[in-house]
């Protein structure tokens, strides 16, 4: 597993664990799959990064650019959940890529 993929997976898991996060925003591919629900998941790409989380890096040593889209629970305060998600991301990054700088955006795209 590449560092990129491992980081994506770890970050997604960290954000999902944050209280008040319902789920990461489902991507178009996932929603399409749900729309034509008779076709089962093709195991190949179901592991691919969720659309709600995107990591990029302009060059090998530049800062990571991390964009996360979350759907929060109505009983939680959106700002508090987002802050907690932000802290979870920071913690995860420190553990996995301690020296790297990162620009992080977290967007609430739904409340359920």
């Amino acid at each position: 597993m590449t560092q990129h993929a491992a980081l994506t997976e770890a970050l997604a898991e960290a954000v999902r664990q944050v209280p008040g996060v319902a789920f990461l925003k489902p991507g178009v591919a996932q929603r399409l799959r749900a729309a034509v629900s008779d076709t089962g998941d093709s195991g190949a790409d179901s592991k691919a990064s969720p659309a709600g989380l995107r990591i990029s890096r302009s060059d090998g040593n530049g800062p990571w650019k991390i964009e996360i889209q979350i759907v929060t629970l109505a009983e939680a305060r959106a700002l508090d959940v987002t802050r907690a998600a932000r802290r979870a991301v920071d913690t995860c990054l420190e553990a996995m890529v301690p020296s790297a700088a990162a620009r992080i955006t977290i967007t609430v795209t739904g409340i359920v």
Partner: peptide
């Protein structure tokens, strides 16, 4: 600057 957002429709 905090990088935290919410979509308008939400």
């Amino acid at each position: 600057d905090d990088g935290m957002w919410i979509m308008e429709s939400v």
